[in-house]
């Protein structure tokens, strides 16, 4: 098992490297001299020369990548063009906020999706099944930002029950667990949870339906197992695949919340990215994408390992 963990971790290294290379090249892909991407166009000549040397832009590309990677590994993600501040502290708090939002959305979407999907899969063709399918399709197809705005109009503007913007009553952007903060997260979390709920519903419906069609279910019924006993078998068989889908969805929640964060002015990575794009703040863009991608790679590894743990056939 330890060998498995080690091998899988090793497999994700090249992926991580490729992702970092892409992020590094982002600066070079952007049109014009990379220095234009790093410094504002009106920067004085001596600053340009200084930065050029500091960033090693005079050196060959592979060497530049090595230097950049070394810095990143030591926590130096560079400076923002817009604010001139170190990127890491801002990114850190944004990442924490996005994580809180994604976790909240997952806590709403995953259990609901699991419940709807399992019931639908167990009663294929029944009215419950059809209702769940409609729900899943609606969840996947409704545009995020539209749903977000509708929610704001209903719950903030008309009913005035919940705040429509920001992560905290004081506007600090620092998350805490109290009613004030919770009331801020309700609307964005629900909005964000709709897609994963739809996808998890759809996937679990398929998984559970397939498992119930397998021969061993007949064997288990033939042994006289009651519903409870059967459910234990279905859960253990469904878990590896279900986990894989949820892991991926969590990744999408992290990276894909950009529209929802913009609608609700949630101070997370999405908002950070949005602002960076509009301000052409390439270093911030670079750092944020890198960190989110690494998160995704790590999540995939975790899912892989969890699957191996749950399914004996995958322990190889």
């Amino acid at each position: 098992m330890i060998a498995t963990i080690f091998r899988r971790a090793l497999y994700s290294l090249p992926i991580a490297l490729a992702v970092s290379l892409f992020c590094f090249l982002l600066v070079h892909i952007a049109p014009g001299d990379p220095i234009n991407a790093i410094l504002p166009p009106d920067a004085p000549a001596d600053v340009v020369a200084q930065v050029k040397e500091a960033y090693g832009l005079d050196k060959p590309l592979p060497v530049q990548f090595g230097i950049w990677l070394f810095r990143v590994l030591h926590g130096d993600l560079g400076r923002s063009l817009a604010t001139g501040r170190d990127i890491w502290p801002d990114l850190h708090s944004a990442l924490a906020n996005t994580l809180v939002l994604a976790a909240a959305a997952a806590m709403i979407g995953f259990p609901l999706g699991t419940m709807f999907g399992s019931i639908a899969g167990a009663f294929r063709g029944s009215w419950i099944d059809r209702a769940a399918v409609v729900l899943a399709v609606a969840g996947v197809s409704v545009p995020h930002y539209w749903l977000g705005m509708v929610m704001v109009v209903i719950f903030s503007v008309l009913l005035n029950w919940l705040p429509s913007m920001g992560a905290s009553p004081d506007g600090s952007g620092v998350w805490a667990l109290d009613w004030g903060h919770l009331s801020h997260i309700v609307l964005p979390a629900i909005t964000l949870s709709v897609i994963p709920m739809g996808i998890v519903t759809r996937t679990l419906r398929g998984i559970v339906g397939d498992i119930l069609n397998q021969d061993f279910i007949t064997t288990l019924r033939g042994k006289g197992l009651r519903r409870g006993g059967l459910i234990a078998h279905v859960v253990k068989n469904a878990a590896p695949q279900a986990l894989a889908v949820m892991g991926l969805q969590l990744g999408y929640l992290m990276g894909g919340s950009i529209l929802v964060e913009t609608v609700f002015a949630w101070p997370g990575t999405g908002l950070l990215l949005n602002n960076a794009i509009f301000q052409r703040d390439i270093p911030v863009l670079q750092a944020t994408i890198l960190v989110l991608s690494m998160f995704f790679v790590g999540l995939n590894l975790a899912v892989d390992l969890a699957q191996a743990l749950l399914d004996p056939r995958m322990r190889r």
Partner: peptide, 8 residues
């Protein structure tokens, strides 16, 4: 092979 539960 198919009549036994693969993960138990």
């Amino acid at each position: 092979m198919t009549a036994l539960d693969p993960v138990f």
